[in-house]
Write a protein that binds this DNA or RNA. Structure first.
Length: 877
RNA sequence: GGGCGCAUAGCUCAGCGGUAGAGCGCUGCCCUUACAAGGCAGAUGUCGGCGGUUCGAACCCGUCUGCGCCCACCA
């Protein structure tokens, strides 16, 4: 805290009995949240007669704690659902967590490693027990963070992807897919992580350019010599052919013959295959069907044997001098041996090429031939694409749908089995005589001698793909499922569009008879640091949201995040900005204090417009415009815009102008003051309700103090009453113009803000006459007493403010400033005049634009007259 | 190799055909009885370069340059 935070005592005429001069989030947030939960505000009733509004949480992994990206996502979902709840929907914000198979298993394995224990030391059962233990701790931490953030989730419905109900859902859909022949088992080349010792799916592989070495090796001798190139020399031990293009004249004579494979004493055939690009390299490719996906396909086409030469740890198993070497050791050993034989004809190093890495542990992926379970995605993906194509599901922002189609329309089959211990066990049993039985959820697994269950578990996305309906009780036909499916909107990051969103679409359509899991997919961006850099632990710029919540309050963190949330775009966030949001919360706090101390009220009907001052009519008119704007932004998921709109309306218009103007009104008292107290109450009441979904805590505290009601959580969402008063809006704009102009003059003249100046206001013939007292108060103007001499005369907006600054005024400074303004006004007049004499413009520009230019011209002319008059009124010197 | 996106004030970003905007930062004055986590006033941009369309372009089209992201089985 700075020295400035030294406070005035919280007593005396400016104190409020309950609200101190500074908002202290820590004092209110925790207890408010617990009260909301206790009162059951966030629970959702499946039997309610209200229309449903459903959003599921993108289930956080139970791998640790939430980061700022979660805080961001939760802020958006919470704002959406809080508004809908206030609008009277039966609102469900479904909480839960994801077991996150491989990620969690890795975390727990790392924990064990610290104790010097491997999972194999524990054995499967004990290890899984250990992971459950971890889940308990980590899960508690996560829900604690969610409470701090203010997430209005239905805690009584919390689910976990591994709980009984969801496991049953997994088994049910597995069985259904199996019976429909959309799940099958096959031996293929898969992405193998030699560290995690499991297969992973295509999207779990991250490609990056690594430096390697491209060696060109001569196979065969003399006439039969063919040069092939590789970055993975060790795989040559498993080569079972060399392939060339069928039309390649260079090799035509060799197709069908056999050549010698160096180091092995084996002879391998030369085959012709369309896949080979004759333009690339030498136009000849070594074929290793067991260790490369392309080669595997070539092998299939030509009936080549699949020769595996590495085990699951990527250690060479092929007999000979290289047996037992790790793949990288083997690589250099083999290159060395080939070089010794004079087989290496070229080496290129470094050779940057794209290499796949395990997204969980960054280990280089080894393509490996393996028996795995697969989902046949073709028919499912077709449906998932069509649902978006025909508009049943909308992707927001829309240009993200291109990415979606690109993926859904070009999908390979999905490898769903994982050689892990943490996850849903594959419900398939193998019999002693090679029987394969898929067991449904209500069936007994086959028992007896020799029957064993498949030891693999399912990809974690298999269960999270069911999340929109499994959390509602599916496969049981529950009331909740009937009420809350499909979900209203899915709010999630564009980074898991493929991992999660596409899978939910496929499974939702499949399991729920063609009903897509949600109406809208609202994609948000990634949280970045204040310089737009990706946040990561290794880069040292990752922020624990709790730290900022402790320092500035949850509302401040939420408001900052919401204010940066442009659809689909990454959101940078810095501590300075959180401070600014904290300041905003404090500003709201103090404005409401002011209102309470001055008797603002929400009691009784709002007085009819005829009984209100222009100031009151102006702010009510603006208030309703803001209600309409905010609604439109919410419906379009424009969180940044709605937050910004509220920020500026509250601070600039309500706090800086309306509250300041109301001080004069309250001082004068009478019927106008009474009406104004009611209007101020109304404005704050509505503004706090509008702000509540984004900054729930401070608004709850203040709104209940203002209204005496139970909670803003269950208050009605404001409606645009339709009231507009453009005349009043123009009138206050004029007032603002005059006040600003005179303030500027005062500042330019170096007058102290508090210094009183004698002045005469000429307001007759303008709409500003009623505001004289307010203007005098805002501008520190005294009545023009005896001996008043107007040394400066400021005509603005039809009014004139004459000031007596005898002996104080700096005539030269003012003359200079006016000259500058005059030049600007004259330039403006010239520009607009030119435009208005442009025939093309007049002929083609729309009326409202022409009208706008006319107004600008008129304004410029008025400014010229005003400034000229001001110049003339300056004392000659 | 394909696809998408971005280049606007010192920083991070809105604006996407009719006078250049916000927050933070910056300058000056002020503890004016809601708030110094504040008030008032102010400065700051050939809207990446070059062409084109248009009465008019930060905004549309083409092109170049520099970034970023996604997808892909180039040995």
């Amino acid at each position: 805290m700075t020295e400035n935070s030294q406070q005035r005592p919280d007593s005396g005429p400016n104190s409020h009995p309950e609200l101190p001069t500074q908002y202290a989030p820590a004092d209110v947030e925790g207890q408010l949240y617990e009260r909301w939960v206790e009162r059951g505000y966030f629970e959702a009733d499946a039997k309610s007669g209200k229309d449903p509004y459903t959003v599921v949480i993108p289930p956080p992994n139970v791998t640790g704690s939430l980061h700022l990206g979660h805080a961001f996502e939760h802020t958006l979902i919470d704002a959406l659902t809080r508004r809908k709840r206030m609008q009277g929907f039966e609102t469900l914000w479904q909480p839960g967590m994801d077991h996150a198979g491989i990620a969690t298993q890795n975390v727990v394995e790392r924990e064990l490693a610290k104790e010097g224990v491997s999972r194999h030391d524990l054995g499967r059962e004990a290890f899984v027990e250990r992971v459950w233990q971890w889940k308990g701790e980590s899960g508690g931490q996560i829900s604690g963070q969610m409470r701090r953030l203010g997430d209005g989730v239905a805690w009584n419905r919390e689910r976990f992807t591994m709980d009984d109900g969801l496991s049953k859902a997994v088994q049910t859909i597995f069985k259904k897919l199996y019976d429909d022949e959309l799940i099958y088992r096959a031996e293929r080349i898969i992405n193998w992580c030699p560290r995690c010792l499991t297969a992973i799916s295509d999207i779990e592989v991250e490609y990056q350019d690594d430096d390697g070495e491209l060696v060109s090796i001569r196979y065969g001798e003399g006439d039969t010599a063919i040069v092939v190139a590789t970055t993975r020399a060790e795989t040559m031990l498993g080569d079972t052919a060399v392939a060339v293009h069928p039309d390649d004249d260079r090799y035509r004579h060799l197709v069908g013959t056999e050549i010698e494979l160096p180091l092995t004493g084996r002879r391998i055939p030369v085959v012709a295959d369309e896949h080979v690009d004759p333009e690339f390299g030498t136009g000849a490719v070594k074929v290793t069907p067991a260790h490369d996906p392309n080669d595997f396909e070539i092998g299939q086409r030509h009936g080549l044997p699949n020769l595996s030469v590495m085990d699951e740890h990527a250690v060479i198993t092929a007999h000979g001098p290289f047996q037992g070497l790790d793949r990288l050791e083997a690589r250099s050993a083999i290159v060395g041996a080939l070089r010794a034989e004079g087989r290496i004809v070229a080496e290129k190093r470094p050779y940057a090429h794209s290499v796949g890495h395990c997204s969980r542990c960054k280990t280089t992926i080894e393509p490996r031939l393996s028996m795995q379970w697969w989902v046949k995605v073709g028919p499912l993906a077709k449906e998932a694409g069509d649902a978006v194509r025909d508009g049943r599901v909308k992707i927001h922002p829309e240009d993200m749908s291109k990415r979606y189609f690109d993926w859904v329309d070009n999908l390979h089959d999905w490898c769903i089995s994982r050689q892990l211990w943490w996850g849903h066990r594959i419900p398939v049993w193998y019999g002693p005589d090679g029987e394969v039985v898929c067991v449904g959820p209500d069936e007994e697994p086959p028992s007896g001698e020799g029957w064993t269950q498949d030891s693999d578990v399912l990809d974690t996305w298999f269960s999270s793909g069911l999340w929109p309906f499994s959390t509602l009780g599916w496969p049981e036909q529950t009331d909740s499922l009937a009420k809350f499916y499909p979900n209203s909107v899915l709010v999630t990051g564009y980074d898991i569009l493929f991992f999660w969103v596409a899978r939910m679409m496929m499974f939702g359509l499949y399991a729920m008879d063609g009903t897509p899991p949600f109406h809208t997919i609202a994609l948000h961006g990634m949280v970045r640091d204040q310089f737009g850099k990706k946040m990561s632990k290794s880069f040292g710029n990752a922020v624990n949201p709790l730290d900022w919540m402790d320092a500035y309050g949850s509302d401040a963190v939420r408001f900052t995040l919401a204010r940066g949330a442009n659809p689909g775009v990454d959101v940078p966030i810095g501590e300075d900005w959180v401070q600014a949001s904290r300041n905003f919360a404090n500003k709201i706090w103090n404005a409401t204090r002011f209102a309470l101390m001055n008797g603002a009220t929400v009691e009784g009907e709002l007085p009819a417009p005829e009984r209100l001052s222009a100031t009151d009519r102006w702010i009510l008119s603006r208030l309703n415009e803001v209600v309409a704007d905010v609604d439109a932004f919410y419906d379009d998921y424009q969180f940044a815009k709605l937050s910004d709109t509220l920020f500026h309306f509250a601070w600039d218009e309500v706090f800086d102008w309306y509250v300041e103007l109301s001080k004069t009104t309250f001082q004068k008292g009478g019927a106008e003051a009474d009406a104004s107290r009611r209007v101020l109450g109304e404005v704050l009441d509505v503004t706090l309700r509008l702000l509540h979904p984004v900054v729930p805590f401070v608004t709850e505290k203040l709104w209940t103090a203002l209204t005496g009601q139970e909670s803003v959580v269950i208050a009605d969402w404001p409606k645009d009453s339709g009231f507009r008063d453009e005349a009043a809006e123009r009138e206050i704009e004029n007032l603002q113009q005059v006040v600003t102009e005179v303030r500027r003059f005062r500042a330019d003249q170096g007058l102290q803000p508090g210094q009183k100046v004698p002045a005469r206001l000429e307001l007759s013939g303008t709409s500003l006459a009623a505001h004289e007292d307010a203007m005098r108060s805002l501008l520190r103007l005294q009545p023009a007493g005896e001996g008043f001499t107007a040394t400066a005369s400021l005509p603005v907006a039809g009014a004139t403010v004459a000031l007596d600054l005898s002996g104080v005024i700096d005539v030269e400074a003012e003359r200079k400033r006016l000259a500058k303004d005059l030049a600007a006004a004259e330039k403006e007049k010239a520009q607009t005049t030119a435009k208005l004499s442009n025939e093309g413009f007049l002929a083609k520009a729309p009326d409202h634009v022409v009208e706008k230019i006319r107004v600008r011209q008129t304004t410029a002319e008025a400014d010229i007259a005003r400034i000229t008059a001001q110049l003339a009124s300056l004392p000659q010197g």
